[in-house]
Amino acid sequence: MSELSTTLAAVPQAWFATPIGAIGLTLAAYFLGVRLFKLMRHPSWCPPVIIAALLIAAVIALLPIGIDDYNRGAAWLMLLLGPATVALAVPLYQQLGQIRALWKPIVLTLPLSATLAACYAVLIAWLLGAPPEVLASLAPKSVTSPIALSLTQELGGSTALLMGALMTTGITAIFGVEWLSRWMRIRDPRLIGLALGINGHALGTVRAFEISHQAGAFASLGMSLTGAFTAIVLPLVWHLWA
């Protein structure tokens, strides 16, 4: 009997010894998360990503494995983020005509919007007495995660806190865009897409693709331009101040 239980206890370790366990868990949690999201009637404050992440965290806490075992396997899945980012060229190219017609207002408004996205949060946190490490982790919060991670390392922030800030920002931006655009009577998918991409990075862009292809393309544009602009300007401004 005890032999059986020791063998059973070894099963999770065997699963997570190769990346297969982590990849299987991530996929299963994703589909379960999407199903629960539909059952909950599409709550905008709780996207499927968060439900799925909670499920994965629960499984890791219950099984005799650690977050490091999971991360080692999931890193294989996250490798696809690179090619997936390159693939965003397709919606970008499809909307190029629209974007070319609007390049002037976009160039005028985007740098200001991207600057404000970083400034508001840093200013509020600074007023509330947050230390520099926290400020450096919050500043790149509206930028897509690969850029934000390299930025926060350069500024001296915490990677884990930044990931948390990215997720909170993404969800708040999705909720905020939905709520404020209804309140301001904005229905233009280009505008909603841009606002989602500038403020809500990849999470906002994923949401924009659920609205329409056009909103998604403008969100990818907003996300990449905000990323590029912040990557250039933020380190310069930060080192001038500090």
Binding site: T109, L112, Y120, A121, L123, K141, S142, G176, A195
Partner: peptide
């Protein structure tokens, strides 16, 4: 407390200002 306030208020404020800016400038 400081982190959550900064993230929630900061993001809502930046969403509001970008929507307002874009509505003014986009034809």
């Amino acid at each position: 407390g400081a982190i959550l306030t900064a993230l929630l208020l900061g993001t809502l404020a930046s969403v509001a200002s970008s929507l307002w800016l874009m509505r003014r400038c986009l034809p």
